[in-house]
Amino acid sequence: MPGVVHVQAKINGEDTNFLCEPRQSLLEVLRDVLGMTGTKEGCNDGNCGACTVVLDGRIVDSCLVLGVEAQGREVQTIEGMASPGGLHPLQQSFLENAALQCGICTPGFLLASRALLDAEPDADEGRIRHWLAGNLCRCTGYDKIVRAVIQVSTAPEK
């Protein structure tokens, strides 16, 4: 059995310590070591975006990042998106717009959409479609997801 590594990272604002094997992905660490199963696995090879998390402000596919790479860095996952006061406006918009069917892709879409609107609050449909092209959804045909994000964006045309 390969040796385990002690990793210190900030996860959803909390200082977190965990042990992981060097071969374990961040996705595996989140789900299996830390029990944070809100981050989903769809492909484990960087092609579906279900495992999207935010690493030091950038969205990444956590299946393509090693757990040990989180050392000293900040990770945000779906579990940290709502605040004690309530849902993030995107979460609310996804609910109201029926932007999820099975919901397995939803955490990934939410984190990716938030990253977009944080950087470009006025993103329009074209920009949103471009940005979300790394996240696969097989249920919705994307229509209602894109509409849910448009509703939260401040783009003039709705």
């Binding site: 809100g38 996952t77 779906i78 849902l87 979460q91 999820l100």
Partner: peptide
């Protein structure tokens, strides 16, 4: 819905 937008819903892999 709320469980599914907050990552709390329990799927088979969870």
């Amino acid at each position: 819905g709320v469980d599914k937008v907050t990552g709390r819903a329990q799927y088979g892999a969870d």
